[in-house]
Write a protein that binds this DNA or RNA. Structure first.
Lengths: 248, 248
DNA sequence: ATAAAGTATGACGTAACGGGAGAGTCAACA
DNA sequence: TGTTGACTCTCCCGTTACGTCATACTTTAT
């Protein structure tokens, strides 16, 4: 039942070193036999590996993959369905590339003219909608950006920021038993949205996604609920309504 | 006509830094204005960039790409046609991956059973036929490895090696009118396989592929048939059988 | 029982850029 | 005509995802 490393490597088509690496960074850590120290992979480990390779195929860095699959809100089935969509999208791009190559061949045979833009159609691998969707769903670049910005700030600036945050949290906490759709709640959440956009840049979708994280990820929930029990949930709802109302 | 770096980056969907990098390693070096030192890209540069990105998409390291496109024997049109084939192959693999995902979804819903091998179908990105073809066409790693190892050897060692080769060739030549599946032929070819793995490292698939080359590439055929007419063909058949028999 | 094959843990190497610093260049607008 | 903001240049260090030894122990096959 439990497989040794080479066998797993062969089945999955990766190197032994890769599996060592995944263990090192704690992305995929199998059990080890007490006596020999050998890594033993279960079938569940194999499933996880499959997931990892899917995400890798889609261009996610290992760090992000780790976050995603170890997140408490990670839903395997949902992920698979998104995978399918993204793969189909990828195939569409591939088709476009094939068309591009065919045009290039014809062009080289003098049959047609080809513009420079056409030359690179299908290559745009980073800016597509489903990957965007995935980034929003599972925590994304904007968060990294904020963190980076925070890193560059002076202590004083951080204090200002933290004061601002606290005041908004407190304001929201006071409203947390009213309706998320109320004018007051919406006004307060707008403050929050504007505030966030000082340190990062959030689309409305990202904002809504962030709200979802507040309840999905217990690290957030715990932090936020310090200002009042149920605040995370209230903010999540309020943010969702705000986002939906403000879409053109 | 001549474009500045940002414009090129935008058209091709790569970063400015990437173009800087390609200039550094002399993969793609545009002209520079004498006065400002700015890089100026011509339309020909753009074409080359397109080729580079194609090869990159197929997983070639930049070093190899440089060799390929700067080789005097490099034929743009031929390369494009192979590109198309490889892209189509890639789409096939992608289709397989999509099937795999769909199966996994059904599996997770308890509708079907799924074997471990099935789990990873479509992922095997390094061992496919067209990429193999490309590697053979434009020089491949195993050959480089052998060359490197050969380079490190003393004259004496080389002589030993050459003696070993000759003795195996002679042995095989003597058997070339018997059946490739016979015990003797298989034993002799195993010697050959082991021998090759002293200087390189050949998987069974690579071994089989090598055998195919013996008949496909006349430089090999000529060389081998010096030991007896038809030896190349005989070895090819014997190697294929050996490879197939030894896959567990 | 002894060799061959597999595995483990470091530690260093590599490829393909990313990203910032510091300084010069260009284009447009006031 | 000056200046401002977007581009560009050349270092140069950092990062990701492993590759590649070296060295030592364990398992498997003969």
């Amino acid at each position: 039942m439990a497989k040794k490393i080479k066998e797993v490597a062969n089945i999955a088509g990766v190197s032994v070193r890769t599996l060592h690496h995944y263990d090192e960074i704690e992305l995929l850590s199998p059990k080890k036999t007490a006596d020999s120290g050998y890594r033993l992979y279960t079938d569940e480990n194999l499933e996880t590996l499959q997931q990892i390779l899917f995400f890798k195929e889609l261009g996610f860095p290992l760090k992000k993959i780790k976050e995603i699959i170890s997140s408490p809100s990670f839903d395997r089935r949902e992920a698979l369905k998104l995978h399918r969509k993204m793969l189909i999208e990828k195939r569409r791009r591939l088709d476009q590339m094939i068309t591009t190559v065919e045009k290039t061949i014809q062009h080289s045979e003098g049959e047609i003219y080809m513009s420079n833009k056409e030359r690179f159609e299908g290559f745009d691998f980073s800016h597509n909608s489903y990957e965007q969707e995935a980034r929003e769903r599972w925590g994304d670049k904007t968060v990294d950006e904020s963190n980076a910005k925070m890193g560059n700030m002076s202590k004083e600036e951080k204090n200002d920021l933290s004061a601002g945050m606290n005041s908004i949290y407190t304001k929201l906490a006071a409203l947390r038993h009213t309706s998320p759709a109320s004018e007051k709640a919406q006004a307060a959440i707008k403050e929050w949205y504007d505030f966030l956009n000082k340190i990062g840049s959030y689309s409305l979708d990202a904002f809504k996604g962030l709200g979802q994280m507040y309840v999905d990820d217990e690290r957030f929930t715990k932090n936020i609920d310090q200002f009042g029990e149920g605040l995370a949930k209230f903010m999540c709802d309020t943010m969702a309504i705000y986002a939906d109302n403000n879409k053109k």
